[in-house]
Design a protein around this nucleic acid. Structure first.
Lengths: 232, 232
DNA sequence: CTAATAATTTAGTCTGGCATAAATTTTTCT
DNA sequence: AGAAAAATTTATGCCAGACTAAATTATTAG
């Protein structure tokens, strides 16, 4: 059986469903069949079938026509996958020199194959990192995850200094562009202008003082922490 | 489709079949259905079906009731898997501190998931090793493999100095025991006695001069290179 | 409040990869 | 050479996980 050849885990499909549902829950609320289908690029009827199996296994609760919610076991399994994914991404970038825009895909495959033991060895080799290369928090082995209180760059007021903290790892072209601007988690900047009507944001780097215009859509994907300090 | 989610490869099953057939060919001659079934712990009829699919994909030639032979493409794919497996084992032991008796299982899963690029990054990080931790030669990325000319410890004449070069990675208990004796690839010893009728072999380590009795079955699994030098 | 639209579920099918049981072919032994 | 034994293949069936088409339920608009 497939599941048996895998380390303390469920099938690849199951793990992908759990991760997607976790993600939908934590950023939207209800995870409906259609949302899951869109997230996994799978036809809705296939999702219905899988949802049935998963709720029979006690990983989620399903209210027909209403949506789905992870049980405690489902949440635990999902967070385990998130940890694996983020530890892998961190390891690949810092120990094997992979670019931050390429590690997502690789981690997406490895997260289903690596043993828990190896993940912990990687974590130790990295010094138990708390964030992955894109700034996303890494759940602990016990399943605790930090929920950082971030705002997107479009919401940072003019004149305020903020720090980039997190960029989604899912669009590697975006990541390449962001890196080319010199923006990475930890980089501080001041918002010097914001155009209305979903217009661009202008920032000035604290180090280097260089100015940069950033389109609204991109700015919205950049999660920042405000450094509570006004600038003259 | 499954294959599409995998890096430049075939399905996990296909890869396992190719590896097993490669192994049978290089150590026995013909690979018959039953041999493959035994090697993979699968029922013979299942092998018949898979062999059919594989020969339709041009990975092997099948003569009914006679056996199977890898085509050029099949051999290339098999050697790619052998390289992946052995690079992984080497990486896990030297960079992540895994024991040599535990890496086989882990590599067995990862070899199906890792991208070619990552394998090459690992190889570079390791300095393009030629042997894995068990002494097995690592094929090059181009598919060349060294065929070392080794004899099992039972065949080393008394009074001759030899060097352990290779131990199969498949039995982890055996590996643990071998390591506990201080035997690893590269360790030199002299055979001081050989009992007839499949009896034990006695060796004396060159470094340390300690003597050790080794049962016939174990000695047969230890592949050695004779160091052409008589000892007084 | 009913009709139209959208979302979801059911029904039925497909594929890969495995299994068992029965039929077939090859080998071996007398 | 002919019969028994061994190996292999064919015939069938199962399961997970995907699909399409059709039926059902919810939601929205007139």
């Amino acid at each position: 059986m497939i599941a048996d050849s895998r380390p303390a885990g469920y099938s690849k499909s199951t793990e992908d469903y759990l991760k997607a549902i976790y993600w939908l829950e934590s950023s939207g609320g209800a995870a409906q069949t259609g949302d899951i289908a869109a997230a996994l690029d799978i036809a809705p009827p296939s999702v219905s079938g899988m949802v049935k199996r998963l709720s029979e296994s006690g990983l989620l609760e399903h209210v027909p026509y209403r949506g789905v919610q992870l049980t405690r076991a489902g949440r635990r399994a999902a967070l385990r996958m998130v940890r694996r994914h983020r530890i892998l991404e961190t390891y690949l970038t810092s120990k094997l020199g992979c670019d931050w825009d390429s590690v997502h895909e690789e981690a997406e495959r490895l997260e289903h194959a690596v043993s828990d033991e190896l993940i912990e060895r990687m974590a130790i080799a990295l010094g138990n990192p708390r964030y992955d290369p894109h700034g996303a928090p890494i759940p602990t082995a016990e399943g605790e995850i930090e929920e950082p209180d971030l705002v997107s760059m479009t919401e940072v007021p003019v004149g305020i200094i903020a720090e980039l903290r997190m960029v989604s790892d899912k669009d590697s072209e975006r990541l390449r562009y962001v890196a080319s601007l010199g923006l990475r988690p930890g980089v501080a900047f001041e918002v010097t202008a914001r155009q209305p009507f979903r217009g661009p944001v202008t920032i000035r780097f604290v180090r280097g003082r260089k100015e940069q215009v950033i389109g609204h859509e991109l700015a919205q994907a950049l999660q920042c922490m405000i450094v509570q300090r006004e600038v003259g």
